[in-house]
């Protein structure tokens, strides 16, 4: 099973195995290239000895022999190198949290806790909206009350105005003067009847 070393890749921006592979390839490619160079140099040198009876094939076999030995030895060395690099250099110790993940240490919220927090925030939003609309309704009623109150006060003033007119014309208590007025007019009617009778 491949250990993707994902946390390391998150930190390095590449996976450690790739880095190790790059190092491996660096060794392998240059070893290979150098062997080809050595072989071509030897072949060129042999041109100066035409009677040496050494064929390119023979030289090729020598090259392959030396390269095989070096490659095999290198692979042995490299397996240790790979272990050291992956376990000590390109690894992130289990107790280490990367800076971008610090929030998970400060707020270790489980899915349920997070859901509960979200629910509570939604409940607060709902309550706030309810309070806000209640506030609007109350303000609206206050405005309405101002108008109604003004109307009612106007009516009261009207009554007060009425009463002050009466007072201005000497009738302090309207009811009494009205009664007095009624009695007076009754008397006047009686007197009138009298006069009428006498005239007849």
């Amino acid at each position: 099973s491949v250990n993707p070393m994902a946390y390391e890749a998150q930190f390095f921006g590449f996976s450690p195995q790739t880095c190790v592979l790059r190092v491996y390839i660096a060794f392998q490619d240059y070893l290979f290239d150098m062997m080809l160079v050595v072989e071509s140099v030897i072949l060129k040198k042999l041109d100066a000895f035409p009677d040496s009876k050494l064929s390119p094939l023979q030289i090729r076999k020598c090259t392959e022999k030396f390269f095989a030995f070096m490659k095999e030895h290198f692979n042995k060395l490299f397996s240790n190198l790979e272990k050291v690099l992956l376990q000590l250099v390109l690894n992130i110790p289990p107790n280490l949290l990367l800076p971008e993940d610090k929030v998970h240490q400060q707020y270790p919220y489980s899915r349920e806790q997070f859901q509960a927090l979200q629910d509570e925030v939604q409940e607060l939003q709902r309550q706030y909206r309810a309070e806000a609309s209640a506030g609007q309704a109350l303000r609206a009623e206050l405005e309405e009350q101002k108008v109604v109150q003004a109307e009612l006060e106007k009516i009261l003033q009207w009554f007060a105005g009425l009463e002050s007119i009466c007072r201005e014309h000497g009738t302090s208590n309207v009811k009494e003067s009205f009664t007095f007025l009624t009695q007076n007019s009754k008397k006047l009617q009686d007197v009138l009847k009298d006069v009428e009778k006498k005239r007849k």
Partner: peptide, 15 residues
């Protein structure tokens, strides 16, 4: 989402 927790908590206390 748990990366959002600190901001959600701030929002909660604001609300």
């Amino acid at each position: 989402s748990s990366a959002m927790v600190p901001y959600l908590l701030k929002h909660q206390s604001y609300l």
